[in-house]
Structure formats: C-alpha cells, structure tokens
Design a protein around this nucleic acid. Structure first.
Length: 897
DNA sequence: TCATCCCGCCAGTGG
DNA sequence: CCACTGGCGGGATGA
C-alpha cells in the first residue's frame, strides 16, 4: 500500500486486511446516520441491503462527479468543511482520474502515482470520513454499534488508524467501548458535558497556567531586544476567518490565543524535564499531538491556525468547539466523582471519573506518564480534591440556587467580629491615620478622608489571631491564607506610604502596568485606577526577598505622575528594570508579565521557590488588574448589566478602608472608586512546587533560604505547610489575575493564623468564616464560578460557622448576580464575543486516549475558565463576532482550513 | 530544512 | 495463546 510496505514487503494481518477487498462476512452493523433517510448518503458508502454483502468500494472507484453517491456527498461535506479539505479533494480527483486506469496496467511509477497521496490518507480526512458515517445525534435507543474491523475495511485503512480516531472519540464520550473491537456510537450527545468536565479537569490541573508559563518562558528565552519583545507582545492571532474568530485582548489572552504543539507537549511532558528528555521523546509527543489535533479538528473542536512569529510561521490550534463555559457552572464539582457527564446508558462510569482516570496515572495499565513536575501540580490538585471529598458533609455546590443559606450569616458574623476589632483598633490608629492623611501623599483619588485608607495597627507575627478588620458597613473579602506565608498585597500607590508607615518591615515595590501598552483606554473615567501598583511584602518573613524590590518606589512615583496613559513610560520603566540587572530581570520582563496575567502566579510561583517570583506574578496580576480596570470602564455588559452599574451598587458613600494587621500583612486600601485590588497572594504557597526558577543559583539559594526561614515547603522537605487553606485547591491564590472589583468601600482583610501554633479551634474560628468569605472572594476573583459555593468544610474543613450581619448577604447576593467575572468584564469592555473566547486556542496533548482528555481539558482551559460565567447566553453570543480593533498588527494568522 | 504525520513495529492487555 | 490495543518512533511527504 505504501512505499515502506512495498519496499519492505512486510505485510501483517492488518495489511492483508486492508489489501483485501473481499466482501465482508458479516452484515454491516455499523450504524449509519439515522437522522434522516439521506444520512447514509453522507457515509462513505450506503448501507448495504440486508443479506447483500458488497465489497466496500474504494473511494477512488466512485465517480467523484456523482452528487448523489455517498462519496460525493462526503466530498461535499468535507469540501464545505474547509478549504484545505477542498484542496485535498481536488487533489484526490486528480488521483481519481489517474485511478481510472486499471492498476494492473500501471508501471511502477504510475502505480506509485496512482496511490493516494499522503494527504488523502491523513488522519484528519479519515476522521471526516468516519464521522460522516454516523449521525451527530444518534438515536441512543438503537444499537449504534461500531465494528472496528468493518469500519477499517470500509474506509480502507488499517485498523490501527481507526484506533487513533476511536481513542479520541472515546475520550470525548462520543463512543464507548462495548467489547473488543466493538464500540458504541453516541455522537455528540455527551460532548458538551464532556467538554465541561474536561474543562474542569483542566482547571484543576492548571493547564492554562502551565500554558502561560511555558509560553512566557519561551518568550523570555528569545534573544530579542526589549523593543522587539514589546513588539512581540502585541502579536496576536488574526485569522482570516473573521466571522468566527476574534482575537481577544484580555489580560493574559494575548498569547493564549494560540497554543502550539510545542507548548502542549511541554505541558504533557513536564516542561522542567523537557530539556533533559530525549528529543525523540519530545518529537514523539508532538507526533501524538498531531494525531489528536487532527481528530479534534475533524470534530471541529479545534481549528488549526498559523501564527507568524519572529521565528516564522508556526502552526497552532485554537478552540472552535461548543461553548461550554456558560454551562460549566452547572457541571459537577470535582469533588463529586459520581457526577457524570454521561447521559448515555452505555456510559456506565462517570465521565469525570473517566477523565480523571485518564488524566492521572492511576489506572493499572501503563498509560501516559505525567512528568514529575506536572505530577506535582496534578497531585496537588488531587490532594486538594481528595481532602475536599473526604470532608465530612462536603456539600456540593451545583448552582447558585444551592448556595448554603448559612453563607450570609457566616459573612455577617465575620463582619461583626471584624467590626468589633476594627472599632477597637481604629482608635489606636486614629492618630496615625490622620497624620498620614495629611502627609505629602495626596489623598487617594482625591477622596474625602472618610473614604481613605483606614489602616489598623499591624500585629506582630506572634499574634496569631484573626484580624478581620473591616468597616462596619462593608463586608470584608477575606481570604484564608497561611500564617507563615508572606503575602502580597496590591495597593493603590497612594496607600503605600501609609502601609509602610504601619510596619517598616513591609517591602513596598512598584508594580508596573504591563498591559498599558496597546491597551490604552483613554475613555477611562477613572484614570486614577491603579496607575501603578504597590507591592507590599512582609519583609519580616522574607527579608532577603525584598532586596530586589527596593528600587521600586521611586519608579512607581514616576509612574504615578505619568499615569497609565504613557506607554513609552511604561516601556521605559520596563527597560529600566531590566537594565538594572535585577535578579528579577526575567520576571520583570514585560512579556513575562503579560504571560502571567491569566496564567497567574501559580505555576511560576510554584516553580520559583521564592517570594520574588510570586511578586513578579503579582506584578502580572497587577498588570492584569490594570487592564481589567480599564476594561471595566467600557464594560458593555454582555449580561445586560453594566459593570458600572453593578459597581455602583457596591459603592458606599462612607467607604472606609481597613488594613490587615497581621504578621503576613496585607490590606487593600480602597478609595471611592473601582480599582483592581485584592491581590492577596500567599507567596510561599506558590513555592510548593517545582524548583526551577528563573533566578540565578545564588538568588535561588537566597530565596530558598528566605523561604525556609519563613515557612517550610513540603517539597523542600521541611515542615509541611500546616494551613489547611493550602489543602484546598485554590489556584486562585496564585492566579488572581483579576480585578477583585471590590467597591471602593470594601476592604479585603485576610485572616491569618500564626503558623503552626494555631490551634484547631483557632483555625476553625478563622476558617469557618473565611470559607464563606472566600467563596465570595473567589467568585469575585473569577476563580470559582459565581454560583459555586464551597462550603466551609470543603474549603477549610472547619467547623464553626459564623452568623451575623446582613450586609454580607447583600454582598453575596451581589456576588451571585455578578456572574460576570473579571474577565467577563474585561470581555465586555472589549466587546469581545464569547466565540472569540472559546476560540482562544488550545494546547494539545498526546497519547491519544489518555491525553485526549488532557487535550480537551487544555483546550477548555486555554480560555479563562471563568469566562464561562460571563456567557449564560454563550451559545447565542458565541455566534456573534465582534471585531477587536486593537492588536491587529504583528501577527498574521491564517486558518489552515 | 522543517513541519507534518503516515505507518507499522511491538509490547502490554485481556478474552 | 492470540487477537486486540495503543505507545512509540522511523522516516516519508510536502511546503
């Protein structure tokens, strides 16, 4: 059949089978399209009359010109599917015309030429043929059995190739294995749910973060100068098919739009070890990804695009499948393995389970082995999930309607507690506060003192207690964080001095707005919104790590003066930092920041065992936040509820800011306007995984030393982080590339337990309310679906539940209403269609069966997961294409199909 | 030259 | 035991 075969003379059973065109012994059992009587026309061949077995006609044997032959229909279908296939068909026709000559009469060369071209034998085309045989939505009551042998024979391919397709389809639950050599066809009945589940899995495994991380690293490794890099940052996909592809300019989305196979392979293998792996291994992985990608392309779940980069034109894939984001919220949480996307009776086991099984090397059978570094992430997620599952009475939140009624009361009680402390401590602060308010620092955003930062005295690290310091009228957004973990807080520049005044140990660093360039938002009413960010780090616990950050303030000041409007300044700032030879130079790179936006700090932070890394990530987050804030201004509310409006609902005249008073302190100073806030990031938490950093060895050593000093990383062999918070799968803490959207009046306080000394009671007292607040916060952060509630047990496995204040309930309600996550707002602001989001490209996976899940999941995760929450009407919205004017330069992308 | 991916070997699995 | 399954990598093909 092919050269190799012809030359080697090898011919195995399959070969013989393929060579044979003898009538099949059995009646064709393969279900053909049932939707309409004409469905079978789409199949490779019509259903044979019962009892009349016919030799499966070779495609070439059927006149290509007959519009009513199955082959012709298939060709029409395929041709309509894509230009490339059309081209293939054209080539095929040429081949067909050659094939009209009996092969027996062909010479050697002619025989060679008569053979179908490589393209004609591609897996993608084969998959098209295969899919054309079956209805997308078969009657599940019927016996939709697929016999691989028959299919292989009918399609004139080796059974091995059918396996390639079936494996992918099986992972999508489009088919299920009935028995050896037999599958059951389910069509797309379960596809959407499966995708949702896979998306969930992707989220759990932080694929999106990994993608971002790898991309970022790839980018950083490029030798281009700053200017070039900046230019590259503006690159984006511009598919030629503008009707269904929209580049989404969102924080972190710039480079997310297309994920190439290299990135996917690195994720699958584990980027850390890629360099150590045999290149052939990598190549193999890529090959598998091609296989999967071809099948998924045939399923129209992904689309191949080409992105022109500095290194040339690179292929990549973007998600073009159904929008599952709006429905992902209803998907079963991971903690419920019993949840299944399978609606088909044939699928007895949980899809989720199935996905998980294939995602994680738990099955006895040797499957695709996740790279150790990846396993860390995966196991971490698993562990968290396990804990959540194991939690007694872990309620499963499926939708907003199931929000535990106790939530408001919890919040209220917490708020009450906070209020009490606030009242007490505010007195002590009064003097200092007043002093600060009249300091050289201008009033934050020109707001009346009433609305300014209302800090509270920081407690010493030894003071292990909850410090829910919030204004009486404002529910706190509390994030349970590890006590021993240094936290990063992003504040408005005008608040930094205030903060540092409270605690000299805090390290304040400027965080430039990475996304300023190319994302000007001149119409922004609130230009004061985060022109720059100040990173406050508890140097007390990480003194070493702050050194490189000291330079920041002056820079920030400059930034503050120039505002966000000045891209040049931004770039200058960026360059300056780089030129300073800071150990953070890499992290500080503009692209790094951009890349981190959606990715969040998670992966990178995990890899980098130092606060600096986290800091950088936070910078990214801040950048994201800045961008986010900008987008908010132009929020066009896909949900019909303008962000501004929603925001306004949160605004309270007597907004007051509180300051977290903790060893690992952070607080969100607020002002009477919306601003990207609330990046409460437990730095050490990010260092649990990985050991690769972008820092020098010396820096690593220092950082590690600092880290161990402040806390112990389980991986480092130290005392495991005791906080139960870390047991919860909250990549949010790493990522948080979001605009917290806290009202100006809102305050983010973080209960911090003092290290291992925290007693269970203490923990409970902290965690219980925190769980509620965390839900709220996470929802705002877009890190969990707005309608998804994690119980205290789930989140914290704690007991006591706070009861109390009503305004918390209001907040929660708002949280529920504001299903639009930060990205959604960004989305709105950019008038981005859901479709474009969906089409943000995908990482591809390998190992056809197992890794198809990865692929799928990655595809899903390629888009900010929480985008989904923004598109309840995604199906409709996704069809709308809204042009995104910005970033039309730099990269040209063309669809392969 | 490189991206793409066909092809089939072969080891593991399971009836 | 043997067919099925699918991981894997050589190397052909096309741009």
């Amino acid at each position: 059949m092919n050269k190799r075969k012809a030359c080697s003379g090898k011919m195995n059973a399959e070969d013989k089978e393929n060579w044979s065109f003898e009538p099949h012994e059995s009646t064709l059992k393969t279900p053909l399209k049932q939707a309409a009587t004409s469905n079978w026309l789409l199949a490779e061949k019509p259903p044979p009359a019962s009892g009349h077995l016919t030799t499966p006609p070779k495609p070439n044997e059927i006149s290509p010109g007959d519009p009513w032959t199955p082959t012709a229909n298939l060709k029409m279908l395929i041709s309509a599917a894509s230009p490339e296939i059309r081209n293939r068909e054209q080539e095929k026709r040429l081949s067909d015309s050659r094939n009209e000559i009996p092969e027996d009469h062909l010479s050697g060369d002619e025989y060679e030429k008569s053979q179908p071209s490589r393209k004609e034998k591609s897996l993608g085309l084969l998959c098209h043929k295969f899919l054309a045989r079956y209805p997308s939505y078969p009657d599940i009551s019927k016996n939709n059995e697929i016999c691989l042998d028959e299919v292989a024979e009918e399609l004139n391919v080796e059974r091995r190739r059918i396996y390639d397709i079936m494996n992918v389809l099986e992972s999508l639950h489009m088919v299920s294995r009935l028995a050896k050599n037999r599958y059951s066809w389910h069509g797309r009945h379960n596809l959407k749910k499966t995708l949702q589940i896979l998306k969930k899995v992707a989220e759990e495994n932080n694929y999106s973060q990994q993608v971002e991380l790898i991309k970022r690293r790839q980018y950083e490794e490029e030798p281009e100068g700053d200017d070039q890099k900046i230019q590259l940052m503006a690159k984006h996909v511009r598919p030629n098919d503008h009707t269904d592809i929209c580049f989404v300019e969102l924080p972190g989305m710039e480079f997310r739009a297309v994920v190439n196979l290299e990135v996917a392979a690195k994720i699958l293998i584990g980027e850390d070890h890629v360099e150590y792996l045999d290149k052939s291994k990598f190549k193999t992985k890529i090959r598998r990804l091609y296989d999967i990608a071809n099948v998924l392309s045939s399923l129209e779940l992904i689309r191949k695009v080409h992105v022109t980069e500095e290194k040339g034109r690179k292929p990549a894939f973007k998600w073009t499948g159904p929008d599952v984001f709006s429905e992902i919220l209803a998907a079963q949480p991971v903690s419920t393995p019993t949840a299944t996307a399978s609606s088909h009776p044939a699928e007895g086991k949980s899809s989720k389970e199935h996905c998980s099984k294939n995602l994680f090397p738990t099955r006895s059978k040797q499957g695709f082995i996740r790279h150790p570094s990846l396993m860390k992430l995966a196991k971490g997620a698993q562990s968290n999930q396990r804990k959540i599952r194991s939690a007694p009475s872990s309620p499963v939140k499926k939708n907003a309607s199931q929000i535990p009624p106790s939530f408001p009361s919890k919040m209220a009680q917490l708020a009450t507690i906070c209020k009490q402390q606030l009242d007490e401590q505010s007195r002590d602060f009064k003097k200092r506060k007043m002093k600060l308010e009249h300091s050289t620092f201008p009033s934050p955003l020109g707001l009346p003192p009433k609305t300014r930062l209302k800090p509270k005295p920081f407690l010493l690290p030894s003071q292990s207690e909850i410090l829910p310091l919030i204004h009486n009228s404002v529910p706190p957004a509390m994030l349970p964080l590890h006590p021993n973990v240094p936290y990063a807080l992003y504040l408005h520049p005008s608040q930094t001095q205030l903060v540092t005044a409270y605690n000299p140990s805090f390290t304040v660093r400027p965080v430039h707005c990475a996304n300023v360039a190319g994302s000007k938002s001149t119409t922004e009413p609130s230009s004061q919104v985060a022109p720059g960010k100040i990173f406050i780090e508890d140097s007390g616990s990480n003194g070493e790590g702050s050194a490189s950050c000291a330079k920041g303030q002056d820079l920030w000041l400059a930034k503050e003066q120039e505002g966000t409007k000045d891209d040049v300044v931004h770039e200058r700032h960026f360059k300056r930092r780089r030129m300073e030879g800071s150990p953070m130079k890499k992290c500080a790179s503009e692209e790094a920041v951009l890349h981190d936006v959606l990715l969040g700090a998670s992966v990178e932070s995990k890899k980098s065992r130092c606060p600096i890394a986290s800091r950088l990530d936070q910078e990214t987050l801040t950048s994201s936040a800045v961008k986010q804030s900008k987008s908010e201004k132009t929020d066009q509310h896909l949900e019909g509820q303008p962000t501004q409006q929603r925001q306004g609902e949160f605004l309270e005249p007597d907004s007051v800011t509180t300051v977290q008073e903790m060893p690992a302190t952070f607080a969100i100073a607020t002002h009477k306007t919306w601003f990207p806030s609330g990046y409460l990031i437990p730095l050490p938490h990010c260092t649990k995984l990985g050991n690769e950093t972008i820092f020098s060895n010396k820096e690593k050593a220092e950082m590690c030393a600092a880290e161990q000093k402040s806390y112990s990383s389980p991986i480092a062999g130290g005392i495991p982080v005791t906080s139960e918070f870390t047991a919860v799968n909250f990549p949010a803490f790493h990522i948080a590339p979001v605009n917290l959207k806290l009202p100006a009046s809102s305050v983010a306080t973080v209960p911090v337990v003092n290290g291992t000394a925290v007693t269970s009671d203490q923990a409970d007292s902290i965690q219980a309310p925190s769980a509620s607040v965390m839900n709220f916060t996470l929802q705002h952060l877009g890190l969990i679906p707005a309608n998804l509630q994690m119980s205290a047990n789930q989140v914290l496995r704690s007991g006591p539940v706070c009861q109390g204040a009503e305004h918390v309930g209001f907040k929660q309600e708002k949280a529920k209403q504001n299903v639009l996550p930060p990205y959604g707002d960004e989305l709105n602001g950019k008038s981005v269609s859901a479709a474009s989001l969906q089409q943000a490209t995908v990482p591809v996976t390998s190992s056809i069966l197992d890794n198809c899940h990865d692929f799928q999941a990655s595809c899903e995760s390629a888009v900010v997961p929480e985008f989904c929450s923004s598109f309840h009407e995604s199906d409709r919205i996704s069809q709308a294409t809204l042009a995104i004017p910005q970033r039309e330069h730099g990269v040209s992308t063309e669809d392969k199909f």
